[in-house]
């Protein structure tokens, strides 16, 4: 059985590994969330800008709003890795 053969070193190493997996999931899933949110906003923003160039600033503003989500993912990943 794997459990019986597990030493403290192995347990520590796998804990580090799980942290890394967690960090990866945090960034990856948060990134997908941001991507999904930006999908619609970005499309509409490009359309609006194509019709009226003055919309660019506002369109950019709307498009980057969901970006905070992935930043939170990144922050969580950093916290996981460096605490």
């Amino acid at each position: 059985m794997a459990v019986e053969t597990m030493t403290i070193e192995v347990a520590q190493a796998s804990a580090v590994g799980f942290k890394a997996i967690g960090a990866g999931l945090a960034v990856g899933l948060a990134g997908m969330g941001t991507g999904l949110a930006q999908l619609g906003i970005g499309g509409a923003a490009v359309g609006a800008t194509a019709e009226n160039k003055e919309m660019f600033g506002l369109a950019l503003l709307f498009t980057v709003i969901p970006e905070t989500v992935v930043i939170f993912g990144l922050v969580v990943a950093l916290l996981l890795l460096f605490t």
């Binding site: 970006e67 905070t68 939170f72 990144l74 922050v75």
Partner: peptide, 16 residues
């Protein structure tokens, strides 16, 4: 909360 935490991107994006 999120507006203040949003500034942590200064660290996070830089680190990446």
């Amino acid at each position: 909360v999120s507006h203040v935490l949003s500034y942590t991107r200064l660290a996070a994006v830089g680190l990446s």
